[in-house]
Design a protein around this nucleic acid. Structure first.
Length: 277
DNA sequence: GCCCAGGGAATCG
DNA sequence: CGATTCCATGGG
């Protein structure tokens, strides 16, 4: 990656395998808005970004180098060599198709608390409604930043009750959000320690929270902790496994199962190859 | 009205 | 144990 400052913008180039459209709208993050042909608007931590992709260049508009280094470099997983990883996938014919049709998906390294709460909300739910609930959560409880809202912090949520959360219209999931907040607050579940645990222990730790089962735990590890070997199995991935991988995932996905999962998930949901199925 | 959605807890056999 | 049922809400 090369990083230049032009006017007040950060311009990065030579980032291989990063397509904003595919990455931001493949169901891993729920707060991005498309603002134009190649422009996107989003919030991470307390930083708001307007980003534009033109070919091999990604432009972070009106952003300081400090902010880019501190927040966005990690968020877009810039240091990881996706080109190499994705090339490794092409020995499998289905993954070859998926990575060709939807090239440039990266796993976004989100804030762990946000990922946890977001995927608690995602259970037995559909993506448009998940987005709405999260938007109401941010507007109702997060810090206002200009026209935007940060995702609420643990402190901002530490005293909320199920009744307080009724404005979200999250249904039965509200009590799970409260349980997650309480257990993190009293250190029954320690997000700091989870990032250093072997993945089996990390899973078990997250599953102490009500409403966190295998799938939500796996999503939290993948998107909130950057554990790219985590493999969330939702209804779509279940279909993929039943239709294409009855003997399990191919060897070429080893240690990168979560990245493979993201390509397969997005491909199976959106490709015309599976129209009306 | 029915079915389904990036599931999980509670209950039943 | 595995299998079934219920959980809130909204869109198709």
């Amino acid at each position: 990656m090369t990083c230049k400052i032009k006017n007040k913008d950060i311009v990065i180039s030579d980032v291989k395998c990063l397509d904003l459209e595919n990455t931001l709208f493949c169901g891993q993050a729920f707060r991005w808005k498309k603002t134009g042909e190649n422009t996107y608007h989003g919030v991470v931590l307390d930083s708001v970004a307007d980003i534009e992709q033109s070919g091999n260049e990604i432009i972070f508009k009106n952003m300081s180098i400090e902010c880019f280094e501190k927040v966005w470099k990690k968020y877009f997983d810039i240091e990881r060599d996706y080109e190499k990883i994705v090339k490794g996938f092409t020995s499998d014919s289905y993954l070859k198709k998926a990575t060709e049709e939807y090239y440039g998906i990266r796993i976004l390294h989100q804030q762990s608390f946000e990922a946890l709460i977001s995927f608690i909300i995602s259970q037995n739910n559909n993506i448009p409604r998940i987005m709405g609930i999260i938007e109401r959560l941010c507007e109702g409880f997060g810090t206002k930043i200009g026209e935007d809202y940060a995702f609420p912090t643990l402190t901002q949520l530490e005293n909320v009750t199920v009744e307080d959360l009724s404005v979200l219209r999250a249904g039965f999931r509200a009590k799970y959000i409260v349980d997650a907040v309480q257990k993190i607050k009293n250190k029954e579940v320690d997000l700091e320690k989870i990032s250093e645990m072997p993945i089996e222990d990390a899973r078990a730790e997250l599953m102490k929270i009500k409403g966190v089962g295998a799938k939500v735990a796996e999503c939290t590890l993948l998107y909130g902790f950057g554990r790219v070997e985590a493999f969330p199995v939702d209804v779509w991935v279940k279909r993929i496994m039943a239709e294409m991988y009855t003997d399990g995932l191919p060897e070429c996905t080893k240690n990168y199962e979560g990245i493979a999962q993201q390509y397969l998930f997005h491909w199976r949901r959106n490709s015309s190859e599976f129209k009306d199925k």
